[in-house]
């Protein structure tokens, strides 16, 4: 909930990653960037981050925030500098975005295919987030180049595994929130009415 000074504001984000982690955006690069550009951008970003960490007063929440930022930068380098890994990541990401739109369309048209597409999408999005926002992020932390630049060690990994699980599930939730309801009937909320409800619930709830 707390914002940090180097968190990008929405207008600063180059592309909206729609919840599907975009490692190009994390490094401030276009999708056509070469491995050399990836390394340069990574080193510059990591240097800035390490210097900011050195100046900051580290509370527990800030430590977690910086750890996550560091993990994301490491993952960006690890995935984007390897052409094979980079292509499969980008293809999977594109395929997922397409599948989401296909499912949305089927849902809007009331097509029988909607439920099948929804299941397919759910299984693939979980797989995508698990691989690119958790497994490979942890793997990147053991990479020599990443270790040298970020000083990542076993203690970081231990702490990061919980943070990454949290990050992955939060991203899943973020994506889910904009998708059509599938386990409930559709509903829209009147937030003025909700605010009044919150007032009455605060009075009624037990201490």
């Amino acid at each position: 909930m707390t914002k940090h000074k180097n968190e990008p504001k929405p207008e600063q984000t180059q592309r909206d990653d729609q919840g599907y982690v975009d490692y190009f955006t994390i490094l401030g690069l276009s999708e056509h960037a070469k491995p050399g550009d990836v390394r340069k951008a990574y080193k510059r970003k990591m240097k800035d981050l390490v210097s900011e960490i050195g100046q900051a007063e580290l509370t527990e929440e800030r430590r977690s925030y910086y750890l996550l930022e560091m993990a994301k930068l490491n993952a960006a380098l690890y995935i984007l500098r390897d052409p094979g890994l980079r292509d499969s990541y980008w293809e999977e990401r594109k395929a997922l975005i397409e599948l989401e739109s296909k499912w949305r369309q089927a849902e809007e048209n009331g097509s029988d295919e909607a439920d099948t597409l929804r299941r397919q999408y759910d299984s693939r999005i979980r797989g995508f987030l698990a691989r690119y926002m958790e497994e490979l992020v942890l793997e990147a932390g053991r990479d020599k180049e990443c270790v040298e630049a970020s000083g990542w060690d076993e203690a970081h990994e231990r702490h990061a595994s919980r943070l990454l699980r949290n990050y992955r599930q939060s991203m899943y939730q973020q994506i889910l929130e904009r998708l059509p309801y599938f386990d409930l009937t559709p509903i829209t909320f009147d937030w003025e009415e909700r605010k009044n409800k919150v007032r009455s619930l605060l009075e009624k709830a037990p201490h």
Partner: peptide, 22 residues
């Protein structure tokens, strides 16, 4: 014969009631 879609109005009613009961 498929996973059910629950009525959202009732789930909302239930959620508010749960807060009321702590």
């Amino acid at each position: 014969n498929r996973p059910a879609r629950m009525p959202a109005e009732l789930v909302l009613l239930l959620a508010d009631r749960a807060v009321e009961l702590g």
